[in-house]
Amino acid sequence: MLFDKIVRPALYRMGRNDPETVHERTVGALRRIGSAPPLRSALERRYRIDAPSTVFGLRFRNPVGLAAGMDKEGRALAAWPALGFGFVEIGTVTRLPQPGNPRPRLFVLPESGAVINRMGFNNAGAEALAARLTATGKPEVPLGISIGKSKAVAVADAVPDYLASLEALYPHADYFAINVSSPNTPGLRTLQDRGALAELLAELRSASAALAERHGRASVPLLVKVAPDLTEDALDELLEVCARHAVSGIIATNTTLGRDGVSPAEGGLARESGGLSGRPLGARAREVVRFVHARTGGRLPIIGVGGIGGPQDATRMLDAGASLVQVYTSFALSGPGVVRRINRALAARPR
């Protein structure tokens, strides 16, 4: 396949010692492919697999989505459905434009099938993303938008910051992911605490209802993305708050500060600060999904993300209680073939 055999190797040769450059060039290449209908059609013929389902009121082409972080600013939206994704989540975006943390801030751990990032929500801001979506339109599949707190805004002032992003992007989102769990924005994870989360969700729910009426559409589902590093007690409290404020679902999980399962062969790379994603996160992500599913009696839909490197991982995540799954690291390291393999396996599962 053109992308696997030619495009990706060329990108890696150009950015051999700089994974972020590879990432940027990959998204750029996919943007160009997505804007060329013959190439997009060729991708779709190879990778598209339909296994539709309805979750929190949305119809998904298949249960495999692109996780936030791969296409932060929605530059390649036409390409992702052609690569087999049943839904796409972009962001995390913040109200204020921000450069993120200094480079280098993205590290590949090849022996572990993992990535460490400390990107810091680098993005052009919610208004810029809204302008792009207005100009380019949405993808053919459901579009989630992950919103977070601007680094320059104090935690005490987080609510109006999130509300501004919600308002700017409301016409474009099929669901919002409320990111209160990234380890790379100082103080952000404190928004998972009972009081702070309750205040945030109350205001977002109220604003969402008003925005839905203003735009003449159904209220957009709000999902909360949780950290894998929370204790069971902390997760219990978080789920109580989510139930009280009628959130539509949970995304489990974000990246981890832990380094369990990382190969000793990675050396100093494993000591880089930031959130770890990929294979070592899989077992813990499934534990969190299983816990959330059990505590909510299966009533709260879950998007399972973390360590999904192939069909077996995706099947285990669904068996743990997830309704949908997302991939990021395995796609970044292995290309779109992994999405096709997962979708083929999940489409064959009894329903």
Rank of each mutant, 00 (worst) to 15 (best):
F3H: 13
V7C: 06
P9R: 10
R13I: 05
R13Y: 05
G15L: 06
V22L: 02
E24Q: 13
G28S: 10
A29T: 13
R32S: 08
S35R: 14
P38R: 10
R40M: 08
R46T: 14
A51N: 15
S53R: 15
F60C: 00
F60G: 03
V64Q: 04
L66P: 07
L66R: 12
M70Q: 12
E73M: 12
G74E: 07
G74C: 10
L77D: 01
A78W: 08
W80A: 00
L83Q: 12
L83K: 07
F85E: 02
I90T: 15
G91M: 01
T92A: 12
T94L: 06
P97F: 03
P97I: 01
G100R: 12
G100K: 10
N101I: 07
R105L: 00
F107M: 05
P110H: 09
M119H: 08
F121A: 00
N123Q: 10
N123G: 02
A126D: 13
E127G: 02
A131K: 15
R132W: 12
R132I: 05
T134H: 15
I147L: 05
G148D: 07
G148R: 03
K149G: 04
A152F: 05
A154W: 09
V159W: 05
V159K: 09
P160R: 13
D161Q: 09
Y162T: 12
A164T: 13
E167W: 07
E167T: 15
Y170T: 09
I178P: 09
I178Y: 04
P186R: 14
G187E: 09
G187S: 07
L188R: 10
D193W: 13
D193M: 10
R194T: 14
L197K: 07
A202W: 13
E203M: 12
A212C: 03
H215R: 14
V220N: 03
L222Y: 11
V224H: 08
K225E: 03
V226N: 02
P228H: 13
D229V: 12
T231P: 08
D236K: 11
L239I: 06
L239F: 12
E240C: 05
E240H: 12
A243L: 14
H245A: 00
A246D: 15
S248E: 13
I250P: 09
A252C: 10
T253Y: 14
L257F: 05
D260M: 11
D260I: 06
G261R: 04
G261N: 03
S263P: 08
A265Y: 07
S273A: 14
L276N: 12
L281M: 09
R286M: 01
R286Q: 12
E287I: 03
E287Y: 14
F291E: 06
H293K: 13
R295N: 01
L300P: 06
P301T: 11
G304E: 07
I308D: 05
I308P: 02
G309R: 11
G310E: 05
P311Q: 02
D313I: 02
A320C: 04
A322L: 01
S323I: 00
L333C: 04
S334G: 15
S334Y: 14
G335Q: 00
P336W: 11
V338C: 03
R340M: 01
L346D: 02
L346Q: 02
